[in-house]
């Protein structure tokens, strides 16, 4: 019996496959999901999502969002998601700097915009952290 994992962002369906286990970064810390898990709805923090399939582990970095487990299918809705191998450290650094600069510049910004920029920064930080951990 395997889990069906689906990761979807507003831009695209990032991941859709049968996997053995998945570890999700929630606001309360990491939660590991195995087949037969009780139905669960949780809030996701920007962080590292680990997928194990046939003994090999894949790392993805996801932005804030929600995850739902129901009857051996795991659905992850995230603002953004990227496979660890595809992370470009320089580009991420650049994106983070831009977002931080934009945050500092404007004080009368729309709260929605601030939220979005903060999301970008959190996602960037999570990407950098995962990348550096994997390199060592």
């Amino acid at each position: 019996m395997a889990l069906t994992l689906e990761i979807v962002t507003p831009e695209a369906r990032v991941y859709s496959d049968k996997v053995d286990t998945v570890v999700i970064p929630t606001v309360d810390g990491e939660i590991g999901i195995l087949p037969g898990h009780i139905p669960l709805l949780t809030q996701i923090e920007a962080g590292e999502l680990r997928v194990t399939k046939n003994g090999s582990t894949e790392f993805l970095v996801i932005g804030p969002g929600f995850a739902e487990v129901q009857g051996d299918s795991v659905s992850v809705l995230a603002e953004s998601a990227i496979n660890e191998e595809k992370i470009d450290v320089n580009a991420v650094e650049e994106a983070r700097r831009r977002a931080e600069a934009a945050l500092k510049e404007k004080f009368d910004m729309d709260p929605g915009e601030i939220e979005r920029l903060e999301g970008v920064i959190r996602f960037a930080v999570a990407q950098l952290a995962t990348k550096s951990r994997r390199r060592n």
Binding site: D28, I38, L40, L41, T42, Q43, G71
Partner: peptide, 12 residues
């Protein structure tokens, strides 16, 4: 999707 009738867990 609606088949799993066990109680749902919410985190936090």
């Amino acid at each position: 999707e609606f088949n799993d009738t066990r109680d749902m867990l919410f985190e936090p």
